[in-house]
């Protein structure tokens, strides 16, 4: 929608948020670098199968999680998803 249209027909303005089904996966990627959470039961299964309890990915690497957040912060996705950052949340905002 053009700027001219928005001025003339404000009710035609689009809602700029993400669909519900997109929100959780995107939020998880930004916060922990992956979509599904690593449940304790699965960690146990991993150990039983003789592979590392924590996978050698961002699951065990807070630094990698921060890097993803930093990359996404530079894009529009961060605003679109409309949630607070980890620091903001921790400080109670």
């Amino acid at each position: 929608m053009s700027d001219e249209e928005i001025v003339l027909y404000p009710w035609r303005k689009k809602v700029k948020t993400l669909p519900e089904s997109f929100k959780n996966p995107i939020m998880n990627i930004i916060r922990m670098g992956h979509i599904p959470k690593l449940a304790a039961t699965r960690e146990r299964i991993r150990e039983e199968l003789g592979i590392n309890r924590k996978p050698p990915t961002a699951y065990k690497d807070p630094n990698a999680q921060k890097e993803v957040e930093e990359l996404v912060r530079e894009t529009d996705l961060y605003d679109k998803a409309k949630w607070g950052t980890r620091e903001e949340e921790e400080s109670g905002r």
């Binding site: 689009k14 809602v15 700029k16 993400l18 669909p19 997109f22």
Partner: peptide, 9 residues
């Protein structure tokens, strides 16, 4: 639908 309307519909 996402590109034109920002919805997954």
């Amino acid at each position: 639908s996402f590109y034109h309307n920002e919805e997954a519909d």
